[in-house]
């Protein structure tokens, strides 16, 4: 067990545990805080894989914007939502069975891949090469220029839709 594996397993366990706490806690605010921890765990997994840009973006966008938006939304519905709803419904046994069957199928298929047991190849990029490649890919027509512009249209739609809905409800 190399040090890297130990670190990876501890971060992975942290992320999975936080995710379980998110869905099983009754108090919505606590669930949002555990979500922040789960997202931190995912960011550290990105950093371990050498994708530092995505680790920083994960913290910046997910925790700094989306988690805060979620917390504000939780506050907004606090008067309406009560904390006494049950966390499971009657079909939870069947759901567990189905999920574990799917899980074992997926694990079985992945482990039959030849690269499953090989260690991660050494990441030799330092500095800005990966981000440079990403940047050039965003704007070059033979790269991802069209998805780049489509992403901006998607963001525009999200902005307008969100503001329209929120403003409408606000004027009531």
């Amino acid at each position: 067990m190399s040090v890297q594996q130990v670190i990876f397993i501890s971060f992975a366990l942290l992320t999975v545990f936080s995710a379980i706490m998110v869905v099983s806690l009754r108090n919505l605010f606590h669930a949002a805080l555990w979500l922040v921890l789960a997202l931190l765990g995912i960011a550290s997994l990105f950093a371990l894989l050498g994708a530092s840009f995505f680790a920083a973006v994960q913290i910046l966008v997910y925790i700094g914007a989306i988690a805060i938006l979620l917390i504000f939304a939780v506050m907004l519905t606090r008067n309406i939502m009560s904390d006494e709803v049950t966390q499971t419904n009657r079909a939870w046994g069947l759901a567990v069975l189905l999920v574990s069957v799917i899980f074992f199928i997926i694990i079985g298929q992945i482990s039959s891949w030849s690269g499953f047991s090989q260690p991660l190849s050494e990441f030799t990029y330092t500095g800005q090469e990966t981000i440079l490649a990403l940047g050039k890919g965003f704007v070059s027509p033979s790269g991802f220029a069209l998805p780049f512009e489509t992403a901006s249209v998607l963001l525009l739609a999200a902005l307008l839709g969100g503001v329209y809905i929120a403003m409408d409800k606000g004027k009531e």
Partner: peptide
């Protein structure tokens, strides 16, 4: 190599 983003992230 993403220090500038890190700056913004810890603000969050």
């Amino acid at each position: 190599n993403v220090a500038v983003l890190f700056l913004l992230a810890v603000g969050g």
